[in-house]
Design a protein around this nucleic acid. Sequence first.
DNA 1: TACAATTTTGTAATCAATACAAAGTTATGA
DNA 2: TCATAACTTTGTATTGATTACAAAATTGTA
Lengths: 139, 139
Amino acid sequence: MTEQALQYLVEKGIKPSVQRVAVMEYLLTHKTHPTADEIFSALYPRIPTLSRTTVYNTLNRLVEQGAILTLDIDQKKTRYDGDISFHGHFLCKRCGKIEDVPVVNPEYVKGIAPRSLNVTDVQLLYKGICPACSETKNN
Amino acid sequence: MTEQALQYLVEKGIKPSVQRVAVMEYLLTHKTHPTADEIFSALYPRIPTLSRTTVYNTLNRLVEQGAILTLDIDQKKTRYDGDISFHGHFLCKRCGKIEDVPVVNPEYVKGIAPRSLNVTDVQLLYKGICPACSETKNN
DNA sequence: TACAATTTTGTAATCAATACAAAGTTATGA
DNA sequence: TCATAACTTTGTATTGATTACAAAATTGTA
């Protein structure tokens, strides 16, 4: 899997350092749409010299090169997604979990915006209460 | 127009102070999806005692009561929209302007997420370069 | 008027993200 | 191999939007 992440970086034109491969691998193996800080905390035990700044730098580079996507669903912290295929996201306002929402007809959703706008990024965001939280009290 | 904003607040169950009416009126008459600070700066000359905190408090109250919407399209600052009818948004990554994107079939977009998720808020966000910026150099 | 409830205000604190420059690493060519 | 250039990582300091908090002001009510 590390090998796969390395390969993927090269394809995207990113020089594969140890830190970059680790961040990319984390995003390919965790579908949790993590924040920069979550990624840092997960990798720090394995790479004790790792700096938070490096994680931020790496994520920005990965986004620039189109290797990963940012999710703007949570206004406080940017979340990152290693799955660049088109799909929507659901944020539970109570527990904060983000789930993928499959889109059967992605071309339709992408095509809603006028072509003149030259769209490069489409996000479809849902917010609400997830089933698990709905069962809890304080509805 | 002030009268209309006042009326609207009462309908939404919000006690209409001078400050709240001013914020609500601003959002009803400006389709620019302003930030909290832009609203503060616009109202300050008219209401010299106005505090930034009051603008934030008011906006949060308006959102809670469903009188306005937040847009999460810009990760840095929250933007607000006084038009609560369903429509998409386009953010120009160069000039920062946000435009409305009409949605012909809103029920389809809303219905993409599974009903079990209990969705309360749907956002359809596009990013790219607007026509005006596309004509400029540095493409 | 008096008292309670609500709202507004200003300052201080929070915290994600960036700026910056020094230290470390990798690549290139003689 | 060595020297030098180019790039990457790191830590600290800073920025800036937003919130916490408590005092002051306003409004509602008996």
